[in-house]
């Protein structure tokens, strides 16, 4: 009957919509430029594939039942039987989903340990440590080893592990560069660590993904990945041209609002150290060397806890 026709048409319509929408240009998340994002994209595609099978099975069963057992197809005196259930049917009903879920759980656990560790392929590189802290509605990037700091833009070297230390000077935010990898929260009372790496040079979109008030929509930053040499040149240039960041200047930067790109020498970590609370949750991911770095900064933070 025509109702089934409508149903089939309906599903093909939205399948087309998805294909068209995603077909124009690769969706950011599915267009990875680093190993972490690649792992996540492959997990996403794998799960879409598996789930598509389940969806197709359910749709097919539903259409079959609706076509075969509709009242208009039965004799007027047909009395549907009383069926309680069947052990084997139930075993299959539970068993197959359990297998699928077990497989996905395995992949999921494996991925968890991959995205929470130094990016694959760059295990031997010395990670570039960047403290990314958010304030309403800006991002401050401190490069402690290079001794420079930027606002709302991030330069990174390619082919090297990146270790972002995230925290917030205000509401909870979430640091996200979709093409390099998934996001992580930046919070006021602890530092979280996000491991990323870029395989190729390029410009990427970065933003705060977690709602943080009025200026949230524009709380974005530009990411530029370049070769290590270009990165070194840039650091050198900054050191020669930029003004040092002072405590007064930094307080001014923290005022709520939006700012363009800014560049400073020195980092605010020297006079406004990151929070130290709840570090125990990060134990597996922090390297020894960087821990001692944080420790050296804990001096005046003690009083707030």
């Amino acid at each position: 009957m025509h109702k089934k026709g409508i149903k089939v048409a309906l599903f093909s319509v939205f399948l087309t919509i998805i294909t068209v929408l995603s077909g124009c240009e690769p969706l950011l998340v599915l267009d990875p430029k680093g190993p972490q994002a690649e792992r996540q994209a492959s997990d996403i595609l794998l799960s879409i594939g598996l789930m598509a099978i389940i969806v197709i099975v359910v749709f097919a069963l539903l259409v079959y039942m609706l076509v075969k057992y509709r009242a208009s197809k039965q004799k007027p005196d047909y009395e549907p039987p009383h069926i309680e259930g069947n052990l084997w049917v139930e075993v299959i009903m539970v068993g197959i989903p359990v297998l699928i879920v077990a497989f996905l759980s395995f992949v999921s656990v494996q991925s968890n340990y991959i995205v929470e560790a130094k990016p694959k392929g760059y295990e031997d590189t010395k990670p570039l440590v960047v403290y990314a802290s958010s304030s309403n509605w800006k991002w401050h990037f401190s490069y402690p080893e290079e001794g420079i700091e930027t606002v709302n833009y991030l330069y990174i070297p390619t082919n090297r592990a990146l270790e972002f230390r995230l925290y917030s000077h205000g509401p909870i935010t979430s640091f996200w560069i979709p093409q390099l990898g998934g996001q992580k929260y930046a919070m006021a009372d602890m530092v979280t660590t996000l491991h990323l790496a870029a395989d190729v040079p390029g410009e990427f979109m970065g933003r705060n993904a977690n709602f943080s008030g009025k200026g949230f929509a524009e709380n974005t930053f530009d990411v530029t990945a370049m070769s290590q040499d270009d990165f070194d040149d840039w650091v050198k240039e900054v050191k020669e041209t930029a003004k040092p960041i002072t405590e007064e200047k930094f307080e001014e930067l923290l005022e709520p609002g939006h700012l363009g790109r800014q560049t400073y020498t020195g980092t605010h970590l020297e006079f406004s150290p990151p929070p130290t609370g709840h570090n125990h949750t990060e134990e597996s991911t922090e390297t020894h060397e960087t821990e001692s770095h944080t420790d050296s900064n804990t001096g005046h933070e003690g009083m707030s806890h």
Binding site: F11, V29, A37, R39, Q40, A41, D43, I44, S47, I48, M51, I54, V55, V58, F59, L62, V101, L104, V107, S108, S111, N112, I114, V115, S174, W176, P178, G181, G182, Q183, K184, A209, N210, F211
Partner: peptide, 26 residues
Amino acid sequence: IPLFTLGGVTGVMLAMSAADYQYHNT
């Protein structure tokens, strides 16, 4: 049944925590 199944399977996708780093807050 079909629409909820779609929502259910995307829930399984979201449950994959590493991939959720990309779905979260979007």
